[in-house]
Design a protein around this nucleic acid. Sequence first.
DNA 1: ACCTTTCCTTGATGCAGATCAAAGGGCCTG
DNA 2: CAGGCCCTTTGATCTGCATCAAGGAAAGGT
Lengths: 246, 246
Amino acid sequence: MDLDLVAVPSCSSCPIRHRAVCARCDNDELERLNDIKFYKSYTAGQTIAMRGDALDSVASVVSGTATLERVIEDGRTQMVGLLLPSDFIGRPGRETLQYNVTAVSDVTLCCFQRKPFEILLMEIPAVQQRLLEMALDELDAARDWMLLLGRKTAREKIASLLMLIAKRTMHPDGKVMGDITRIELPISRETMANFLGLTIETVSRQFTGLRKDGVIDLDGNRVVRIPDLEGLLFESGDDGDGGTLF
Amino acid sequence: MDLDLVAVPSCSSCPIRHRAVCARCDNDELERLNDIKFYKSYTAGQTIAMRGDALDSVASVVSGTATLERVIEDGRTQMVGLLLPSDFIGRPGRETLQYNVTAVSDVTLCCFQRKPFEILLMEIPAVQQRLLEMALDELDAARDWMLLLGRKTAREKIASLLMLIAKRTMHPDGKVMGDITRIELPISRETMANFLGLTIETVSRQFTGLRKDGVIDLDGNRVVRIPDLEGLLFESGDDGDGGTLF
DNA sequence: ACCTTTCCTTGATGCAGATCAAAGGGCCTG
DNA sequence: CAGGCCCTTTGATCTGCATCAAGGAAAGGT
């Protein structure tokens, strides 16, 4: 991780204040985190870190979208995580990074040196508590994703991804807004393919298929309108009850 | 979860004492856990709990093997976790279970009522700390499995599974033993298929293929001999460096 | 405005793994 | 030891997605 250190706004006005690893902190605790934090920014497409790199810092995503991926020698790539604002990068207690981290849009991170952060983790239960909660959420999401990768059809995979993005973007905290819903895809077709265990061509064809069947509406290739959210849920093969999915 | 309550041995002689959620506890803390624990046993094949069930208890696996799985309405099944001794079942703070839990061998669990456990979690940092560590380990394992499910061929999947089982069974803690290695498969072809995102027929065919190519040797259908571990590793598509994989 | 680059879509073809079908083994019980 | 039951293997066929190949469309540079 290297690049522009940017001006650091105060935690109190931070957009991810109530969702990130610091969510449960009181003002004094926040102050301690504030003392050791620093911001870094990356531009779209930039590599943030690579598998095997020394894990000197951990960070929260403040804005933008990043991905975690594993790559096989012959080039096959599987995304193993989608990092949206408030998500946490890095693992306390681990020396090297397990995954490639890539900025898919412009990204700003709120970083902490790993060692000092590990000390805070011991001293501020609110942080450890929140980190545990976030880790368990990610574990559930990863397991839901295993079902998708192992057993869902291409169409179900695309519908599931759209539902996931819809949930994350539409209700920052609560319920669905409008009826004819508009979501903006934060990732390219290629990233989707690597996320879903598909090829870029299949992703494209499934979008076309869903559009022809009236399940979705495309507006350019980064904006999707969903006239019938229930219909999309049906296509996703999920029962809708449990699903955390990021 | 229901069944035989069994006699409860003391924590000090517990086989998973130093690996489970209680690993970091001192004697006083262990005493508090001991006060609220109770054992349950299940026989091979038995359902331990179902997705949607009220999550009244959490538990550690003391002995035996269990699986976590997600099932789609039409019957498609994906295993999302393999639970071996010391692994933790259930999630503090969650009201209902997300996965079916099944005993694949005879299983004994060390259970805690969820609510009292949540209180202990707040009061004993050592438990929360260990639980976080375990959750992060499982998250890494789940992500490695995502690469397998999304991008590996059937042959690579089988080879990866055999490597995984080999690692877990051959060196309980350390290094590989013999040269011509014998491993016993703890799970049926069907369970393997559900683990790997394949059908039972494909699993069978890949076993035959690997045998014909001299990569493995079958002795009955639950015992595999591996003349050349390096060869199997090569077939698995892994680079061998990082891989946690359960 | 034109060229280049990058991303996306569409079409033609191929193949890995699914599906459908049937035939061995073990192992139990009567 | 005959008859079931379950698990596994093997064969034949099908199909969903990958692969190979070629255009289109948006974005950035000159």
